[in-house]
């Protein structure tokens, strides 16, 4: 099942001036694409636009050559899943299992009951993120890392063709960082899922992504393989010169570190 999600000349904003303008961007089956850029550069807005949450001011988003605003929300949700940066604090929190089960609605419909297949998918997603023991716990009682894992498990249970992950590694310990990067890679390589993720840690971006897209000053400042984008020449105009790029000796990936200056 191949998929192609494409932003064409996309401009988005929230009433005021656009957050970004004229963005052209494509992601396809089996590809992992990392969105990087400074705080407030519009990474999350771009993910939301790709998930049909933000209506574009200009341009469009196409899913397999059909504008997503010509599809129903359920149609898009059955193929595109977003794991948001943080869970909205619900006033009456559901349990972990109930939260993840909601992801089956786009496939099953909002009124139908869940089938045994849905239960299986949900159990599998919970097991994958070590949540099985927490299934009956209220979302309000979870730690930051546990909440993050629930959000990721929910996106996985949505069984999407395109997976959008907003800062998937924040709050996670090294074990789960590795687990999720491994999972993302196997989803893309074995199941052909297209992945777009935003990351602040450029070293992790280099480690997992096929392609890095640098978003800054309301436009795309460069995209390409990590080796081409994660260089001082491309990064310095965006982040300033407080950074250092070194080469990982074993793997052929660049590692970007903040430079700590002596005062």
């Amino acid at each position: 099942m191949s998929v192609r999600l494409e932003a064409v000349n996309l401009s988005c904003g929230y009433g005021g001036p656009p957050v970004f303008k004229g963005v052209d961007f494509t992601v396809q089956s089996g590809e992992i694409c990392a969105l990087i850029g400074p705080n407030g550069s519009g990474k999350t807005t771009l993910l939301h636009a790709l998930d049909r949450l933000v209506r574009p001011m200009e341009g469009e988003v196409r899913l397999d050559d059909v504008s997503i605003w010509n599809c129903g929300p359920r149609e898009v949700a059955a193929r595109v899943a977003l794991a948001p940066q943080r869970a909205a604090t619900a006033i009456w929190p559901l349990t972990v299992r109930e939260t993840i089960q909601l992801a089956r609605a786009p496939h099953r419909g909002w009124l139908a009951s869940y089938t045994s297949e849905d239960v299986k998918v949900v159990m599998h997603a919970m097991a994958r993120f070590g949540l099985t023991n927490l299934a009956g716990r209220s979302m309000a009682t979870l730690s930051g890392g546990e909440v993050r894992r629930v959000l990721l498990a929910r996106a996985l249970a949505q069984a999407p063709a395109v997976l959008l992950l907003d800062e998937p590694l924040t709050y996670l310990d090294l074990h789960y960082q590795a687990e999720i990067l491994t999972l993302v890679r196997s989803l893309s390589r074995e199941e052909g899922i297209a992945v777009v993720l935003t990351l602040h840690d450029l070293a992790l971006a280099a480690l997992c992504a096929d392609r890095v897209v640098l978003l800054a000053n309301g436009r795309i400042c460069g995209q390409g393989p990590p080796g081409e984008i994660l260089t001082p020449e491309v990064l310095t105009p965006v982040y300033g010169d407080d950074l250092e790029v070194i080469q990982h000796s074993g793997k052929s990936v660049p590692i970007v570190l903040p430079r700590v200056r002596a005062r």
Binding site: H48, L53, P73, V76, P84, A87, T99, L102, A103
Partner: peptide, 10 residues
Amino acid sequence: AGDDVARSLG
């Protein structure tokens, strides 16, 4: 769970 979550789930 929130409007955006609901919308994102279709």
